[in-house]
Amino acid sequence: MKKDYKKYFLAGPIPLILVIILFYLHPVNEGPPRSEYSEGIWNNCNFTKPAEEWSAAAKRFGGENAVIDLVVAQAHENDLTYLPFPFEKSENVYSYSQTDQVEPYLKKFDEDGLKVILSIQPNNADVADLIDIILTRYGHHESIIGVNVDMEWKLTGNPCHVSNEERNLWLNRVQKYNPEFKLFLTYFKDYTYFPDDAEDVVILYDGEKATQTTLMREYGNLASHYTSAGIYTGYSSSTPPTASHKSIMAAAPNTQYILHIV
């Protein structure tokens, strides 16, 4: 007599079809989930609060993958760039501190395992020169992942624009200190102000003074032209001030950095 194999498989202690279903539904242990982006805060050259406070704020947003965007060359209204550490003044770069205000913060961020982006606001100073000044002094810190050029304050050459030639020059200069470093470029305009996409270049959107619907549309349009992107959020002038993670990732799935204004 021919066996009814279908009946046999379904009649056992654990039906085969149930085993198959449970196999596909049971989560495979692949270790802890990996974050697809780094999240943290922006510090606009503010060294009045202890480093511990900035570190704790970054970790509240990013946990073990927290990042701090730390401005270490600040633009001023006189078109000069000021540094928070001793420096022999040049034509466009001045120091406003007799002590190094940055070093203690970077030591703390190293200890806490944070990622740090060193931001510069060049004004009339030469960007490549500023990169040398900053990374010669701080490039050895384990926390540093690259240098950000805030294009709003770029007054040299074609103001607020970055050419492919400038991109290559700055990226090569940054990676002279560490081949793993990235070049970040920040602005609130569309992609025509930025260079073409390139490896190790991250485009950061800094829009504000609009509804989040408008900001997410503009951010999404900009990010669509690049492999790696990020966004600043938390401006009191935006409505609402902070964009949700869901809206950010929906606008730009290639988001790698979310930086909060605190």
Score class of each variant (00 low, 15 high):
198 A>R: 11
159 P>H: 02
85 F>H: 01
10 L>H: 06
88 E>K: 06
31 G>E: 10
32 P>V: 02
206 D>N: 12
172 N>C: 02
114 L>M: 06
24 Y>D: 09
197 D>A: 10
24 Y>P: 08
116 V>N: 07
170 W>Y: 14
259 L>D: 04
93 V>G: 02
62 G>P: 06
143 S>Y: 05
25 L>T: 02
255 T>Y: 04
60 R>F: 04
175 Q>F: 05
161 H>A: 03
245 H>L: 14
213 T>E: 15
226 Y>H: 10
103 E>L: 08
182 K>M: 11
83 L>H: 11
124 N>Q: 13
251 A>I: 02
14 I>Y: 07
49 K>P: 04
237 S>W: 12
235 Y>L: 07
237 S>M: 09
172 N>F: 01
237 S>V: 05
157 G>S: 08
163 S>M: 06
4 D>M: 09
214 T>I: 14
1 M>D: 05
157 G>F: 03
46 N>Q: 13
213 T>G: 10
215 L>C: 03
253 P>C: 10
218 E>V: 00
20 I>Q: 12
70 L>R: 00
104 P>L: 04
60 R>N: 15
149 V>F: 09
220 G>E: 08
216 M>C: 11
142 E>K: 15
155 L>F: 11
47 F>N: 11
116 V>A: 08
58 A>W: 04
221 N>S: 14
167 R>S: 07
222 L>A: 08
245 H>E: 15
65 N>I: 05
54 W>F: 08
248 I>Q: 13
132 D>M: 00
209 K>V: 11
111 E>Q: 14
114 L>T: 07
217 R>V: 01
229 A>R: 01
106 L>T: 10
137 R>P: 10
180 E>D: 14
104 P>W: 07
77 E>Q: 12
107 K>E: 09
91 E>D: 14
79 D>R: 07
107 K>Q: 11
184 F>V: 02
7 K>Y: 12
90 S>N: 08
185 L>P: 00
250 A>H: 11
62 G>K: 00
45 C>R: 04
235 Y>S: 14
262 V>I: 10
243 A>W: 04
58 A>P: 06
66 A>G: 11
121 Q>I: 03
197 D>H: 10
249 M>Q: 15
105 Y>K: 01
262 V>M: 01
68 I>H: 10
81 T>D: 14
238 S>K: 06
92 N>L: 06
241 P>V: 00
219 Y>H: 07
35 S>I: 11
112 D>E: 15
53 E>S: 11
258 I>V: 15
233 T>M: 08
228 S>G: 00
90 S>W: 08
219 Y>S: 12
149 V>P: 04
77 E>M: 08
118 L>M: 07
7 K>V: 12
47 F>K: 04
210 A>M: 13
6 K>Q: 12
122 P>Y: 04
180 E>W: 02
97 S>P: 05
192 T>Q: 12
164 N>W: 02
138 Y>D: 09
73 A>T: 02
92 N>E: 15
12 G>P: 03
159 P>V: 00
